[in-house]
Nucleic acid binder design. Sequence first.
DNA 1: CCTTTTGTGTGATGACCGTTCCACTATACT
DNA 2: AGTATAGTGGAACGGTCATCACACAAAAGG
Lengths: 192, 192
Amino acid sequence: MGRAQTFETATVVRAARTLFWDRGYEDVSVPDLEEATGVRRSSLYHAFGSKRGLFDAAVDSYLEDVVRPRLRPLRGPDVAPGALEDYLRGVRGALADDRPAVVQSGCLLLNAATAPVGRDEAVAQVVHEYRTELHAALLRGAVAAGVAAPQQVATVCTSAVVSAFVLARIDPAEAVATLDAVLDVVGLGGAA
Amino acid sequence: MGRAQTFETATVVRAARTLFWDRGYEDVSVPDLEEATGVRRSSLYHAFGSKRGLFDAAVDSYLEDVVRPRLRPLRGPDVAPGALEDYLRGVRGALADDRPAVVQSGCLLLNAATAPVGRDEAVAQVVHEYRTELHAALLRGAVAAGVAAPQQVATVCTSAVVSAFVLARIDPAEAVATLDAVLDVVGLGGAA
DNA sequence: CCTTTTGTGTGATGACCGTTCCACTATACT
DNA sequence: AGTATAGTGGAACGGTCATCACACAAAAGG
């Protein structure tokens, strides 16, 4: 019963996610969100409760549509030997991409970690879980690849990914170089 | 000639630096700065021109008093073989420190990198130079330590330091674990 | 058809932001 | 002592922020 929503929730969340990803939580204003989504304040507040509610929806969408698909090959019961290398090269490719929107945004969650909103308990928790999930996935990849010290390799790879995303905003070339170096050190960087 | 300043510039900059370090540029308001420094707006604007001017002074102070002293052993003409390990262990110690103010603040510059103010050209440039300087210093340390592939080792260590500082705000224990792992992988982590 | 329920559009709310203006105070040079 | 100069305190500025209140629009159930 009642009037039907004139916008598609997923589309609006995706638009908001792009904006938050690029500019961070606090630098995006509600008028900015209105413009990007084409939906007026009152509707956004009706649907999401607050700016923060929309951000939380954007974070969920980020995890579901961006993070998990990239991690999928490392999470199933059978992990291919080359899955870790594939993942690292995939991230490398994304950061080396010319499209500036992709390059300069880094990671939505890591950006939030160092921002004021990162001091929020719930946000900090999500970021923590993200890193834990990433590390666990890379560990599975390291084991599957048969490296000598999988635990340390996984941690080093995780740190490379984290710092690459942070550097992406400042110096994409260095971000790529970081991933190349870790591929070398870990012994996956050969002519492959 | 004229009236003398009633506050010591260095002290005020240090207080502002602590605040910016902890909370970031945009989350610190001018009233916050007044309270932390004990100096009124008009005097701050007279001395530093703007909130941004005070932030720039805080960044200079951070580089001079925090970054460079820690990097000193890696910059002179003679670098000790253990200097790289000492540096990494020093950062580890700082992050493992119980004092919450130290632990949870990460790095003033890296925090700025992912924040809105990081999109400012001048700030991005400073952060880039910081990372370059850090990498160069670690490279000297890697050469002095006589590791097999100094270039890659330096890059991996740099990435570990960067991600440790970012993680410090969310999960200090993981930040420490990251540095431990890189010490292991690089071959400096033995019983030493 | 008419009522109920839900979504939308407009406009205003109080709070806070960084910055500026101006009168007043204190120092240093003549 | 007198005057030019620089620093300080306090109040105010316009602008923007996130949020909300209320009237109107549309769809579903009786």
